[in-house]
Simulated scan of single mutants.
Amino acid sequence: MRLLFVGDTVGKIGVEMLQEYLPKLKKDLKPQITIVNGENSTAVGRGISYKIYKQIMNAGADVITLGNHAWNNAEIVDFINDTPNLIRPANYPGPDVPGNGYTIVNVNGKMVAVINLQGLVFMDNLNNPFDTIDAIIKEIKKKVDFIFVDLHAETTSEKLAIARYLDGQISALVGTHTHVQTNDARILPGGTAFMTDAGMTGPYDGILGMQTDLILQRFITQRPVRFQVEENGAGILSGCVIDMSDRDGHAIKIKPILIDPDHPYGN
């Protein structure tokens, strides 16, 4: 089983990068399932709309994951219950959270679970991700052949800690949220593929997808500034491709993907 994962899609340029390169990646890499994090995909860089959800799906995604900005676009509550392939972090508290924290996709008779989870360190105070993932794995482990986790979290230590905790129980865990691709893709001893952060898909110029002058103003003045997504310049697409064993669901290989002006596609 080959899985393609693309990190945080940011704004208009991010969606355009998916539309341009996702079909090429799928043609060349031939993944059986493609997952895209879309939690920053609106024009303001927070949340997702139904129109953008459709654009990302039409570009080639099978599942879209979210993160801490899941609810920033209020429109999402109107459609998330009707879109099972759009998932939000599973550890939001409360009994009536809209949508689902995971989905199971039938890929040629093999069942692939995709779970969205959010960390706690320097993030919103959600339910304990360890308890949440324990409960989900207990519920689904006899129903699925592969388990992929998008862990939306701030700190590298929390991401690695959760990956180590789950090593051998899941096929892969890849981090999102910090928008910078890490150089640590590897297979953990128990057979779980891990990468601290997949990186972002969006404006290559600017700072983490936002306009540079506004970010600089915030750092220099230490006063509140309304950030705006960079809408001009080049784009970047970041992610990874993971090969998993059909025999036991463990990862065999994980390879980063990076497309930007310094790393042109095909080179």
Rank of each mutant, 00 (worst) to 15 (best):
S171P: 10
E16N: 15
L3T: 09
N37K: 01
T83L: 11
G199N: 04
V229N: 03
A198W: 07
N73T: 09
H177W: 09
D131C: 12
P31I: 06
S238H: 03
M210Y: 04
L160Q: 13
I64Q: 04
D150S: 02
I87T: 12
F148A: 01
G7R: 00
K30W: 05
K255V: 10
L126V: 15
V105H: 02
T212Y: 05
V225E: 14
V10F: 11
I136Q: 05
N58A: 15
D243Y: 06
I257D: 13
G119M: 01
D246T: 13
V149M: 01
Y204H: 14
C240D: 01
F194D: 05
A234F: 09
G202M: 07
K143R: 14
D205F: 04
I254H: 07
L188Y: 08
T176H: 09
V63T: 06
P224I: 07
V36R: 01
N267H: 06
L160R: 15
D145A: 09
D243G: 05
L117P: 00
I35V: 14
K159S: 02
I140F: 10
M1C: 04
G175V: 03
Y92W: 14
G101D: 06
D131F: 14
S245W: 10
A153K: 06
E16F: 06
V6G: 11
R46C: 07
V15P: 11
G101Y: 01
A163M: 03
V112H: 14
T65Q: 01
P95I: 02
H263S: 13
K142Q: 12
N128F: 11
H69S: 08
T83I: 11
K27H: 08
P89Y: 09
T201Y: 03
L237I: 05
M1A: 10
K51P: 04
Q19R: 13
L120K: 11
V44P: 00
I33L: 14
H177A: 08
I52P: 12
A163F: 03
G119D: 05
H152G: 05
Q55V: 08
A61L: 08
T212D: 10
V225L: 10
A172N: 07
H152N: 08
A135Y: 03
E230T: 12
V97K: 12
I187Q: 12
G239V: 03
T176K: 12
A70C: 10
L120V: 11
P98E: 05
N72A: 13
N37L: 01
T34L: 01
S41C: 00
T212Q: 06
I254A: 02
P203Q: 08
S238Y: 02
D213S: 14
T196C: 03
I64E: 07
K12R: 15
L120A: 08
A234N: 15
C240G: 09
R218I: 00
D150Q: 03
I56W: 07
E75H: 01
L126C: 12
K141E: 14
V107Q: 12
G67K: 03
G249H: 09
R46M: 13
P84Q: 09
P93D: 07
V241L: 11
K24Q: 06
D145M: 09
G101K: 01
L126K: 12
R223A: 05
N68L: 09
V112R: 06
I252S: 05
T176M: 11
F227L: 15
E75N: 02
A59K: 11
K30P: 00
T212C: 02
K26G: 02
A234W: 04
H179W: 10
S49N: 08
